[in-house]
Design a protein around this nucleic acid. Structure first.
Lengths: 218, 218
DNA sequence: GCCCACACTAAGCGCTCGCTCACCTTCGGC
DNA sequence: GCCGAAGGTGAGCGAGCGCTTAGTGTGGGC
């Protein structure tokens, strides 16, 4: 069996901010287990075992199993928000920024599929307080994408009828990548990111998008 | 508390094929519970309670809790496949058929949100044999949508670079509706269906799609 | 070289889970 | 009007759950 760090740790997420070392190993083990089996089907014994520790060791670093999910969810959402902010606030046209946002957001959902699955699908397993905190982060994610689409629509770059609905659809498309993507599949995260960026530009009616020669972005 | 039939039964799915009556009530109760809390977080006592029966009654009609999920999953996937087949095999242009398929598929995911959630997100909770059976149905769903997109691409109606990837994205968009849609939200299932049909026609580069006046379909 | 704070383990507590079993109704066939 | 099958119940089993507690090894400060 491989250790937790060889699999989830290789997913381009540093987890550097989590200390001490044992707490980080437990967190990575929990991300893996939650992504594979779901929060409720994962036992604390399984998490501790993946981290190479006894079941009781978990409770030295975390108060409950739910605290693990809460921490994972917050770190993941903060990372997702950072990715979208970087893309949407750089210089460039709305078209360029939307394409960048979608492709990098999709790359994160595909490449870091284990954490993305936990972030996107285990939200309901959190208690009311923790869920409320995470939902606030999600509203910021939504606002970031909506902002770019709104700008493009106002400037005439995009042809959008329903900005809120289209924002929802764009995020929806990106998020669902975490459900179906597999590293064993025929596509790399980069390829899916590029394809999806092109599809989204078509959805918003960006000028020049959807031409027969393919993507307008590189 | 309301009974199972008042809520999930009102979701425009007949469940008529399930007999006897007690078995149907249990199935509807299970759909509700699985959709709300997830398969693993749902107890057999909860299901039986919602159906107004004792915990032991469940085992007269079903061998295990997993058999309930299997039955629900198969019925749901068959319904989904039927919806897509009806739309994709009717007469009309590829544009009309794709718009019809997307809008009716989305309406089903939004209006029948409880069963759609179970169908789309509890697949991994099935055992290997049951999952294999359901995956075969999902390949048929995929093929149905891909067929329409392929026809439109071949005839020149659509401008599609990657047929498989675009099919994946279209289905992805529809399926994710089950995750976020709420009847308490600002949109009706019909409105989302129309919006999404328009967005999908833009994605495939259908001629006339994405004009400033909105949807090309009614 | 002693000591204690710290990280960790072995054992197990109380509870709830999926599921079973002995028994009880109800009801159509004759 | 008796009878067996079908459908239901109350009680509870064995297992595994989240989590706790008493005790152990260890490394830095003095």
């Amino acid at each position: 069996m491989s250790t937790a760090e060889e699999t989830a740790g290789g997913e381009a997420h540093a987890w550097g901010e989590v200390t001490p070392d044992a707490a980080r190993r437990l967190l990575i083990a929990a991300v893996e287990a939650f992504a594979e089996r779901g929060y409720h089907a994962t036992t604390t014994r399984d998490i501790a075992g993946r981290a190479g520790m006894s079941p009781a060791a978990l409770y030295i670093h975390y108060k409950t199993k739910e605290e693990l999910l809460h921490r994972i969810s917050r770190i993941g959402h903060e990372k997702a928000l950072e990715i979208l902010r970087t893309a949407s606030r750089r210089e460039g046209s709305a078209t360029e920024r939307l394409a960048d946002a979608v492709s990098s957001f999709v790359r994160w959902h595909a490449g870091g599929r284990t954490i993305a699955r936990v972030v996107q699908y285990e939200l309901d397993s959190l208690g009311p307080d923790a869920r409320a905190e995470i939902l606030a982060l999600r509203r910021q994610v939504d606002a970031e994408v909506r902002g770019v689409i709104e700008e493009g629509a106002r400037s005439g770059e995009f042809q959008v009828i329903d900005v809120h609905g289209t924002t929802l659809a764009v995020l929806s498309l990106c998020i669902d990548v975490a459900r179906w993507f597999s590293l064993d599949g025929p596509r790399t995260p980069e390829e899916v990111g590029e394809l999806y960026a092109d599809l989204v530009l078509r959805m918003v009616g960006a000028v020049g998008a959807g031409a027969s020669d393919g993507a307008t972005q590189k």
